[in-house]
């Protein structure tokens, strides 16, 4: 698969959440589709995620969330803007209750993929986010 060629995606857990299965399955899905994936794993603070996004010069930030406390995602969005990454879409996947979604979208979350989202939808959306540096 080549849909993801030239697109670099950061996939991370946030805070102390260690329900990693979803994030790992998505990371594999994306790699198989040709994306370059930076997987950070567990115990990542918003600051660590933004630093990694800067250092790795990623095209998209993907956050896996398991019914988490969403203020960590709020803080991430604030840091994304402060660090001049406003053009890097932040995508969330996982168990986010519908009533939190409006709040997160208002903060600038680009897309939310609930559990059970088809892989094709994730791939299609992310493939369109490449900045075309070497695509």
């Amino acid at each position: 698969m080549t849909q993801g060629r030239g697109v670099k995606v950061l996939v991370s857990m946030i805070g102390l959440d260690s329900h990693t299965t979803g994030a790992q399955v998505v990371a594999t899905l994306l790699r198989d589709a040709g994306f370059e994936v930076v997987y950070l794993g567990v115990n990542q603070t918003p600051e660590m995620i933004v630093n990694a996004a800067l250092q790795e010069d990623v095209d998209v930030i993907g956050i896996s969330s398991h019914a988490s406390n969403f203020s960590l995602i709020e803080e991430l969005m604030r840091r994304v803007r402060q660090n001049g990454l406003a053009d890097v879409p932040v995508v969330c996947g996982g168990n986010i209750p519908p009533n939190q979604l409006d709040r997160l979208k208002a903060l600038g979350i680009a897309r939310f993929f609930p559990p059970g989202s088809p892989g094709s939808a994730i791939i299609e959306y992310l493939a369109a986010q490449g900045r075309g540096t070497d695509a």
């Binding site: 805070g15 102390l16 988490s68 960590l72």
Partner: peptide, 22 residues
């Protein structure tokens, strides 16, 4: 909850946003 599962206290900088979650 997550902080106490990991044996960090509620007033730890990392815990402050996750106390009582899950």
């Amino acid at each position: 909850d997550r902080p106490s599962s990991s044996c960090i206290d509620a007033d730890h900088p990392i815990a402050r946003r996750e106390n009582g979650v899950l």
